[in-house]
Design a protein around this nucleic acid. Sequence first.
DNA 1: TCCAGAAACTTGAACGATCCAATCCTGCCT
DNA 2: AGGCAGGATTGGATCGTTCAAGTTTCTGGA
Lengths: 330, 330
Amino acid sequence: MAEKVTIATVARHARVSRQTVSNVLNTPQIVREETRQRVQEAIAVLGYRVSQAARQMRTGRSRLIAMRIEPTRDGINGSVLDRFLHGLTETAEAAGYRVLLYTAGDTEREIAAYDDLLSAYDLDGFVLTGTDHGDARTTWLAQREVAFVAFGRPWDDPTAHPWVDVDGAAGTARATEHLLERGHRRVGFLGWPAGSGVGDDRRSGWRESLRAAEIDPAGLDRAVEDGIAEGEWSMRDLLNSGEPPTAVVCASDSLALGALQAVRAMDPAVAVVGFDDTPVAAAVGLTSVSQPLGEAAASCVDLLTAVLDGDQQSPEPVLLQPSLVLRHTA
Amino acid sequence: MAEKVTIATVARHARVSRQTVSNVLNTPQIVREETRQRVQEAIAVLGYRVSQAARQMRTGRSRLIAMRIEPTRDGINGSVLDRFLHGLTETAEAAGYRVLLYTAGDTEREIAAYDDLLSAYDLDGFVLTGTDHGDARTTWLAQREVAFVAFGRPWDDPTAHPWVDVDGAAGTARATEHLLERGHRRVGFLGWPAGSGVGDDRRSGWRESLRAAEIDPAGLDRAVEDGIAEGEWSMRDLLNSGEPPTAVVCASDSLALGALQAVRAMDPAVAVVGFDDTPVAAAVGLTSVSQPLGEAAASCVDLLTAVLDGDQQSPEPVLLQPSLVLRHTA
DNA sequence: TCCAGAAACTTGAACGATCCAATCCTGCCT
DNA sequence: AGGCAGGATTGGATCGTTCAAGTTTCTGGA
């Protein structure tokens, strides 16, 4: 077994000092071309890799970013974050960063996890997902001047921190307009109770589209917790109401799936559109609003590296447009 | 902002030396109880966390394990590894390890990634997924004496390295027996082409169960690549054959989903069982074989920590039993 | 030819924890 | 009372890198 290759080994091999090797790696422009090449060659020949631990100790930076992974819940909505994670890992790798995972039961423990990750692993930055009104996490991180990007808007103040998000209102608007174009007039909406940023945003897209078409949205929507069962019974309720809708836009694929079951049992002509374009939607032929998750992840890496490289303290937020994937149900 | 808390800060605060603090952390049994408490208190008061970078530099261990994350493919089968990853992160955290992600296009690049992760981040161990015959990765890792566990058997030699797996044959056997008990005789099988360890294993469970019931499996199975479309046309083919099956066991939920479409179009009475119990199966009411993924992940962490702590070079492999989740389709 | 000034390169110190070897206690025995 | 064994504690060296400051080499102009 060959002994460990350090910067000193490379230096000896290329007949220069440690610092010159370090310069070749970090500030190549100040090294003479000829020397640079000799060092690069030695690095290649010896198979040298910079020790992150040693570098980290001196610079305090680890080239590691962290993302929280949620306990396996639903399985339907969970897939959204999983797909985002895949994209994040790939893009981060291309930018020279690795992704470290952590779990946390609640916000308090999540903050404890930050503390741990920062002091033990010298984490460079965090990618938060699913921000909400008055998010304690962002406040904590901002106070300590820790770099982070949120996938999800700061609903209270758009300039609070760097963020990337998908325009949910535009998504439901697109879905609603599509249904209006198909001749539907009474387009319903199945969403979550008021108070969540994401939920309110998605509902507003539907509401405004109806208003623009001079249709009164009153009585056409329901607010329930997320879930297939909830989707089913609230859709049944909607279909049993005085003026039942002929189509419905849902805030999630779970709700849409439930709605679909109600529709199949009561009135198969009613159109259904879901949100998130999960694998389940693809499998059952559900028309759904698709978020550009890969792009969102890439933008997150972009913003985070911008902050980390000190280019800018608060880079421009990114708001991406979703698209409507047409299948059988609408 | 308070200055950084190091082991020296703690030592000063507890009026002991750095070494004593280190002993409290690493070999508490050699420190007098009273002293130990004083040090622990100082650690708590100051909010001290050991710097992994510094520790790693001296000891060469990082308390980091890595798992590969695949590019987003199917969405149906991808969810299996995602669920496994969730479990892995949680259990690893409980054992004091963190999970680092990496991607790799092919086996060659995966090995390059090992090299990089090992020398740059001093990774402690790897969790491999989806092993196959003559896996180049396991050979490479074993040669360099890198700790690793595979989620998936080494199909050539069961003692080649530590592994955790789910008994696929037992899963398909259970599904087949269930169908036989329900009165089915001609139970078909939709699987992958011969040559993959997992695929052959799952097929064998079905075949042996039929043989045990003195039914000739000949002509009752098909071998196709994984996918919904493939499942559909091969099921159609099976239903059009001389003696069509009255029930079918599939090697994956994708195949089962395709089969279900064929069945609905041609003969709704035919029962279908999938494999993996993905969210899609749950959503469409597909009976499916469920792998205990959380348990599998926990076992992986157990085996890996056993190797890392030097307890044993090659701990006993773990073979877990899947269960059948009954829904509408069978 | 000589020297200023820039460019290129080298040397010493530091990051924070752990390991090693040496020293200090404490209690106990002679 | 003195000596000694044993465990608890201490200081110094070390891991591999980067920063800060120092030294050499090169370049060009008077």
